[in-house]
Nucleic acid binder design. Structure first.
Length: 1146
RNA sequence: GGGUCAGUGGCGGAAUUGGUAUACGCGCGACACUUAAAAUGUCGUCUGCCUUAACGGCGGAUGUGGGUUCGAUCCCCACCUGACCCACCA
């Protein structure tokens, strides 16, 4: 056989396979299907390193074996290329990301091709291909139609470096997962997917999946289901109620304060009632300033501030407790408020200790004393007891008493009398029982323990509420004991080592030992309720629902999982199939008389408008600061000259003359003018009124106020200003409080109260907002299915703006869409956010089934044929993102009938990283990157494949070793040279044939379970054995080649053809093991004496137990071990071993 | 702090219904082939002690300490170390 030239062989067969379309997947009913999937790569500019193909090699091996075993195999590959890395690369290199992606994809593909994978490239997908993302957009549209996609204005995680919002899943330790920058909270409009609607199903169906347990566990943690109670605390002298979430309502009687998160909606309101308003405002502001990392650092000291004067009422006992604002309570979990039970919660404990708040113990550990349990038929007495643990510092010994009538050893102990505390009681007991007089307290051993036992000395069952106090003897001064005490027990000093549950008669001992010498801490375990009204004495785990009901609360299920923030303020992503009505872009807020701009109404309006994407200008120009209306106008004019027909002006508290001036100046150029709370009463002259009304036919008066005694002719106004929504006082009187109503002809809005200019409260604001709604970007409109895809346009600059708008917003010819014709024509505006990187990868496995279909995401028949992915291989780092998102989308697609299965990936196998030779993560930064191209060129793809599989367990991280790879190359060459030993008249030994069959079984099984390192080692063993034979049959060699074909497809194909086979080895049937041939007829049996191997011998594998025993006993090596001993027992494992259990003859 | 997994020669690792610990490979050593080197092949390679010319023999070792068992890398308990994931989630 000629020399092994890997380059020539590999190129030749790769070309040939492509030409023959050897690996094309077909749907046909005659064969069972097998769908093997890799997590498709994200082609970066760096190209592949040797770690990347590891998973692909494994799926390649599995898919090749399955194909040879007669399955229709689907093993596709594609590219995920939207998102930040490609975009950042484009910014850096100043190239269109589409071009860079195409280049990177081509490079990746080439790198993959030389490794010889069996991908069906005719099914390649690319998430950035409009033909592909059309369907990503389609899925989004369906989600939107079903109410599972919505716009939210809640604060979200914002990365100031990437200049985009992030999903919860994209934040790691408070930092942006991509760039490591600390994320901020920023309020902005976002598209959000309601993944929480699927939380229960995502959790429950995990049980149906054959996935690694740690990945399932991370998903469970991420979903974070917890059951608990929602309970309301009333606020004294206030209408509001604080709703808290707790998993431990059984501790309700231990509540000593209530805590609100700084962002809690009630805080703003409650702080007005707080005596320390400034302090609270400062604390809240500070909390908002902090980054998530600072906030959530668990090591950080807990901080908070009391709402001084605000009092909450505990619903179970009507007790009044203080209210705090503290940032250890998270705004976005539960209800954003907690009831604090410092005795039984570590965080509350830490906070209470720091601020010196009361700790009330209501749960006691429960001990049932098994050695001396309560007895039936005896009365039960509940007592408060104390144990005294007294140490003599001179000797280190502990004081104990040994009971004379009972086999007990206890500490000095006894009941706590009325009016006594536990320390006094303990001292008294020590004195009475042992006579020692002078003690000092060293430690109080935490809270009480409830113990149940039978008190034999009193012939009753005890429920003891026990505490314990530790003392040191000050001196050994001691009084003699009473005769009565002397009769009962003996005083002893014990070695501290003897203080163990087996040496002492205390059910509580383990608790004391656990607390001894430690700082006191919260008891967070289960136990018996104390001081809890009617619930006292009950078990904590049993009363939760009952006590919740008693508190008027409800039992609820909560999830940690948050809805998926789905929009990014970046260029390189799928555009949303969404149009917005073009509305106001900018608003001018003008405050007139005396308003300062600080007032609540202004702030609220500004925030509301900004949240809807309106740019708000609110110059601090007030009529109050100007001597004349004209000078006011003059200051205002330059600030407003840019305002145009798309803009609105809102005037608040403008006097009549100012309003008229404003209208006259601006009504021609601006879109709409709204006047709120205007003192139109100033307009005394009806002609002026007419002027005003005629000047603003397109404008609105939302509310008028009368402050001076001047009657208004409402009918006249409404006739003149048909758009007006007037709110007038019911009886036209001026005396507050008065009620404004709208004439019955229009929508009636009632507004109670004068409001002291704080018109943010009540319907005056709402009425205006209702009007404004028509002018704001509102209810999005879905792009019709026929108009998909919404193609991502080319853009000059990819830089993110940082303002919360994507670069797309600057492309007006793309953003503005004209719909309708003639009179109905209107211009709509495209959504300019783009989808996150995870969108395309959430469903790509479906598209492989039917990649070119223009009518359907996937043809239902094909979807039904391929069904679930049978085997999915990829990195464990996707546990809480891709793998949750894809499951979510799949379930949704199931719900709308697109797919027929409830879960996308039946079996998941995670792949371990390949690290650099230095043990560090392979990265350009460390200069430890190994390029597969170099390895393939030097050693060949087959060697690379075998080595990567042989390195170690597949799912384990492991360091690359080019030296270690030599072994794989040698193995390949040995197989190659073995060809020279093929001889038709070869006679192989029976044991070699047996090994061959065992190897078939092992390799088949190992591949199926991705135990590829042992599969390779089995093949090596086989080759080693065959090399020792003088010659081997062609039949055996062909079996070996077929077993090796999935690992080394090129070399085996070459050898296979060289043997005269006309068709590809990769279409040849997989060898079947013959169990009858897989075993030698003789086996080695081990002879043991007392479990130690003393001899071994060969024997027919079906030898009987008796034969084996007889033979072993007669062996000289064994005789010397058995001689003079008595065989107590003989254990025979047929075909394996015989073990003689012997002992000395008595 | 919680979860998951792991710890075996100089190194990567193998060994599962509890039955010969260290397969396979790397490295290392010796030898053969060679003028030489490389390549290749053969043999050896956990460890201590005893013993021999050579052979051989006895004991110990799978992170540590216990337990169950005729027998434990494997099962149980406690602890130590490391990795990964999650974490102020009430």
């Amino acid at each position: 056989m000629k020399e092994y030239d890997h380059t020539k062989i590999e190129k030749k067969w790769q070309r040939e396979w492509a030409k023959k379309r050897l690996y094309r997947a077909v749907e046909s009913a005659d064969k069972p299907k097998f769908y093997v999937l890799d997590m498709f790569p994200y082609p970066s500019g760096e190209g592949l390193h040797v770690g990347h193909p590891k998973g692909y090699i494994a799926t390649d091996i599995l898919s090749r074996m399955k194909r040879m075993q007669g399955f229709n195999v689907l093993h596709p590959m594609g590219f995920d290329a939207f998102g930040l890395p490609a975009e950042n690369y484009a910014i850096k290199t100043k190239t269109n990301p589409a071009i860079a992606v195409a280049k990177n994809v081509a490079r990746y593909k080439k790198q993959l091709e030389i490794i010889g994978f069996d991908y069906d490239w005719s099914r390649e997908v690319n998430t950035t291909d409009p033909g592909y993302y059309r369907w990503t957009q389609w899925i989004f549209a369906k989600l939107y139609e079903r109410g599972l996609a919505y716009e939210s204005y809640e604060p979200i995680n914002w990365c100031p470096s990437c200049k985009t919002g992030l999903a919860n899943e994209d934040v790691e330790d408070g930092r942006c997962e991509r760039c490591g920058t600390a994320v901020e909270k920023k309020p902005m409009r976002q598209w959000v997917l309601k993944i929480t609607d699927y939380a229960d199903r995502l959790l429950a169906d995990l049980d149906t999946l054959d996935w690694p347990s740690h990945i399932k566990e991370s998903q469970r943690n991420w979903i974070g289901r917890s059951e608990g109670a929602e309970i309301e605390f009333a606020i004294k002298n206030h209408a509001g109620r604080i709703k808290v979430f707790t998993t431990r309502p059984d501790t309700l009687f231990g509540v000593t304060y209530v805590v609100l998160a700084p962002e809690h909606v009630l805080v703003t309101d409650l702080l007005k009632h707080a005596k320390n308003k400034d302090e609270v405002v400062k604390y809240v502001a500070h909390a908002r300033m902090m980054t998530a990392i600072e906030r959530t650092d668990a090591k950080k000291d807990k901080t908070g501030v009391k709402l001084d004067g605000v009092v909450a009422v505990n619903p179970v006992n009507k007790e009044e407790v203080p209210v705090f604002v503290a940032d250890y309570v998270l705004a976005d979990y539960g209800t954003g408020a907690v009831m604090a039970v410092p005795a039984h919660d570590e965080r509350d404990w830490a906070f209470a200790k720091k601020y010196n708040l009361p700790v009330r113990e209501v749960i006691a550990p429960h001990r049932y004393y098994a050695p001396n349990p309560p007895r039936d038929g005896k009365k039960t007495v509940t007592r408060a007891n104390v144990h005294a643990i007294v140490r003599n510092p001179k000797t280190g010994e502990i004081l104990g008493i040994k009971w004379k009538k009972f086999p007990w050893t206890t500490f000095p102990m006894g009941g706590i009398d009325a009016g006594e505390d536990s320390v006094a009681a303990a001292k008294r007991e020590v004195y009475e029982e042992t006579g020692y007089k002078n003690l000092k307290v060293t430690q109080s051993l935490g809270g009480r323990v409830v113990a149940e036992y039978f008190a034999a000395h009193k012939d009753e069952n005890r429920v003891s509420h026990t505490s314990a106090v530790c003392f040191d003897l000050i001196d050994e001064e001691r009084d003699p004991l009473s005769a009565e005490e002397n009769e009962k027990h003996e005083v002893i000093w014990m070695d501290p080592k003897k203080i163990t549950p087996s040496d002492m008669t205390h059910a509580e001992l383990d608790v004391w030992l656990g607390r001894l010498g430690k700082e006191p801490e919260a008891y967070v375990g289960e136990g018996v309720l104390l001081d809890s009204g009617v619930f006292s004495g009950k078990k904590s785990e049993e009363v939760r629902k009952e006590i919740t009901k008693f508190a008027g609360g409800t039992w609820v299920v909560r999830y940690k999982l948050k809805d998926w923030v789905f929009s990014r303020q970046r260029y390189w992503g799928e555009p949303f199939p969404i149009l917005h009505q073009i509305k106001t872009k900018r608003a001018l807020l003008i405050h007139g008389f005396e308003a300062t701009g600080d007032d609540h109404w202004f702030k609220k309006m500004k925030k509301a408008l900004e949240a809807r994407g309106v740019e708000v200008h609110s110059p601090t120009v007030s009529t109050s600061h100007h001597p004349t209306i004209d000078s006011w106008m003059n200051e205002l004019a330059p600030l407003v000259k840019d305002f145009g027909p798309d803009d609105i002006v809102i005037g608040h508290s403008l006097g009549g003359n100012a309003a008229i001036r404003l209208v006259q100046k601006m009504s021609k150029s601006i879109g709409r003018l709204f006047l709120v709370a205007s003192a139109i009463g100033h307009v005394r002259n009806e002609n002026e009124w007419e002027t005003l009304a005629r000047s603003m036919p397109e404008s609105d008066i939302v509310s008028l106020r009368q402050f001076w005694q001047s009657p208004i002719d409402w009918n006249r106004i409404t006739a003149l200003v048909p758009h007006a929504l007037l709110i007038k006082s019911k009886d036209d009187r001026i005396i507050p409080p008065h009620t404004y109503t709208v004439p019955t002809a229009w929508k009636v809005e009632e507004w109670d109260g004068f409001g002291h200019f704080d018109s943010a409260q009540g319907s005056e604001f709402d009425a205006l907002w209702k009007r404004l709604e028509d002018f704001l970007p509102s209810e999005p409109i879905l792009v019709s299915e026929d108009d998909l895809p919404v193609v991502l346009p080319k853009v000059k600059s990819y830089e993110p703006s940082g303002t919360g708008e994507s670069p797309l917003a600057t492309i007006s010819r793309w953003v503005n869409v004209k719909v309708g014709t003639g009179k109905n024509a209107r211009v709509l505006k495209r959504e300019t956010n783009t989808m996150p990187q995870w969108a395309g990868s959430s469903w790509y496995y479906l598209r492989y089934m039917d990649p070119k279909n223009k009518k359907h995401l996937v043809d239902p028949k094909k979807e039904q044929y391929w069904g679930q992915v049978d085997f999915y291989v990829g990195g464990a780092e996707h546990a809480t993102r891709h793998l949750i998102y894809a499951r979510f989308w799949h379930k949704f697609l199931y719900d709308i009938g697109v797919v027929s299965t409830k879960e996308p990936f039946a079996k998941l196998q995670s792949v371990g990283l390949i690290m650099g030779e230095d043990g560090k993560k392979m990265s350009k930064r460390f200069g430890n990157v190994v390029n597969p191209d170099d390895i393939v060129a030097r050693y060949g793809a087959d060697t690379l494949r075998i080595y990567e599989m042989f390195m170690g367990p597949f799912d384990q991280a492991i360091s690359w070793s080019t030296d270690g790879m030599i072994g794989s190359r040698r193995f390949v060459e040995r197989v190659w040279r073995l060809r020279d030993k093929v001889d038709d008249i070869a006679h192989e030994s029976r044991s070699t044939i047996a090994l061959l069959h065992r190897t078939i079984a092992k390799v088949s099984d190992d591949i199926a379970h991705i135990r590829l390192n042992t599969a390779v080692s089995a093949l090596m063993t086989l080759v080693n054995t065959c090399e020792r034979e003088p010659s081997i049959t062609r039949e055996s060699y062909e079996v070996m080649l077929r077993l090796l074909a999935p690992f080394a497809p090129h070399m085996t194909e070459e050898l296979w053809r060289a043997l005269g086979n006309r068709s590809s080895i990769h279409r040849a049937p997989w060898p079947a093991a013959n169990p009858a041939l897989a075993e030698d007829d003789e086996v080695t049996i081990v002879a043991q004496v007392n479990g130690k191997v003393r001899a071994e011998f060969r024997m027919r594998k079906d030898a009987s137990q008796e034969t084996i025993t007889m033979h072993a006993q007669s062996m000289p090596e064994l005789v010397k071990w058995l001689d003079g001993k008595e065989v107590v027992k003989t254990i025979v494992v047929p075909g394996k071993l015989v073990n003689f259990v012997v002992k000395d003859r008595a």
